[in-house]
């Protein structure tokens, strides 16, 4: 009898998406701050690199990641030396790939939100003796809440829905790299339309609800801080 849904794949996808979002937030805050405020002439190069996953076919990104993480690359060798296992077709490798693949979905909303904070507020904070990191925490970040929320939601949803990169880098190992999208693909290939349809409907519903909630929150006239 066919199972109702591939719960193992759903759990794995949710776990992967959560970890990816967390890693992206930690990496994204400083990187987006730099992109928003740096006046380096070569900043556009970094911007282009960050945006690459938006236009590259996932297979291309996956192909290069596979090469970069392989046992003959410096990264692959260093990883193997440290942890005794290989990166490709492992959950850790999948996490690295997901972080890179969803990078623009975190960075771009963050950088746009930081850059739109009134410069006068930042300068007022400096003139009141508050350091740059302090100003980021007390002025820029609170005023960028909508952009941070958007970055979190988009990164999470995008990771949940990735397929090509997972296929290239992760393969299809149940419990380790078999995500929801791979599971659905597999079930359809096996003419197993029942579980595929139910899993797909779940993904559709969750994505819609999360995005609707986000946009509803962004539309609010009253800012969250006025509710405190």
């Amino acid at each position: 009898m066919a199972p109702l849904m591939d719960w193992q794949a759903i759990r794995l996808s949710l776990w992967l998406a959560s970890l990816t979002t967390l890693v992206l937030l930690i990496l994204g805050l400083p990187l987006a701050y730099w992109l928003a405020f740096s006046r380096r002439r070569w900043k556009f190069l970094v911007e282009a690199v960050v945006a690459m996953p938006l236009v590259l076919p996932p297979t291309v990104l996956g192909f290069y990641l596979l090469l970069a993480m392989g046992p003959r690359s410096p990264l692959g060798r260093a990883w193997e030396g440290l942890f005794g296992s290989t990166l490709p077709f492992s959950f850790e490798g999948l996490l690295i790939a997901s972080v890179l693949y969803s990078l623009p979905f975190m960075i771009q909303p963050l950088a746009a939100a930081f850059a739109s904070v009134d410069r006068g507020l930042i300068e007022a904070s400096w003139c009141l003796g508050v350091s740059r990191p302090g100003t980021f925490l007390r002025v820029i970040a609170p005023l960028s809440w909508a952009g941070i929320l958007t970055g979190l939601v988009l990164s999470f949803a995008h990771t949940l829905g990735e397929f090509g990169v997972v296929l290239m880098v992760g393969g299809n190992l149940p419990g380790r790299t078999r995500t929801v999208s791979i599971a659905i693909y597999d079930q359809v290939q096996a003419m197993d339309y029942g579980p595929a349809g139910r899993t797909a409907a779940l993904l559709l519903g969750v994505s819609f609800l999360v995005l609707a909630f986000t946009y509803a929150l962004r539309r609010r006239q009253r800012k969250p801080w006025t509710l405190i």
Binding site: G120, L121, E123, A124, C127, G129, L143, K223, W225
Partner: peptide
């Protein structure tokens, strides 16, 4: 010296009050 250590009070033209505070 950065503005932080100049020990000054600055009133910008647009006031620049922190809207979330």
């Amino acid at each position: 010296l950065p503005p932080q250590v100049r020990d000054l009070g600055f009133l910008p033209q647009a006031y620049s009050l922190f809207p979330h505070l």
